[in-house]
């Protein structure tokens, strides 16, 4: 088996995560799907790291993780704020920026 298979798996996970972002309405679940996509990307980076035999990919994955953590912190804070003001965590309820 070639490590490229990991990349294929990452593509599948990424696609599933993307579909989840598009389909789900609960902001928290949407967030989880985004995390899933980030992890898929990380898997790709790690697999590339192995294919190319250097650790830069892992470093990248590490940075992605840190950024993801920051994003989660802020994002969840926003969700909490949203819930406080609207009593709902549905992304469809926050649709004031329409016509």
């Amino acid at each position: 088996m070639s490590p490229v298979n990991y990349v294929y798996l990452a593509a599948v996970l990424f696609t599933i995560g993307a579909a989840g972002v598009l389909i789900r309405r609960n902001a928290i679940v949407v967030f989880m799907c985004i995390e899933l996509m980030l992890n898929a990307a990380n898997l790709t980076l790690v697999a590339f790291s192995r294919i190319h035999g250097n650790l830069d990919g892992q470093i990248m994955a590490f940075f992605v993780m840190v950024v993801a953590a920051a994003e989660v912190v802020v994002g969840l804070a926003i969700i909490v704020m949203m819930y406080r003001s609207r009593h709902s965590a549905s992304v469809d309820d926050a649709s004031l920026m329409k016509l």
Binding site: S2, A11, T15, L22, I51
Partner: peptide, 28 residues
């Protein structure tokens, strides 16, 4: 639309990876 986008993206990604044609690897 979501299904179409997801499927399309997936197919394209897989196709792209297939094209990359990396058959060997160095290992870490």
């Amino acid at each position: 639309l979501a299904a179409a986008c997801g499927l399309g993206l997936g197919v394209l990604l897989v196709a792209g990876i297939g094209q990359a044609a990396v058959h060997t690897f160095e290992g870490v």
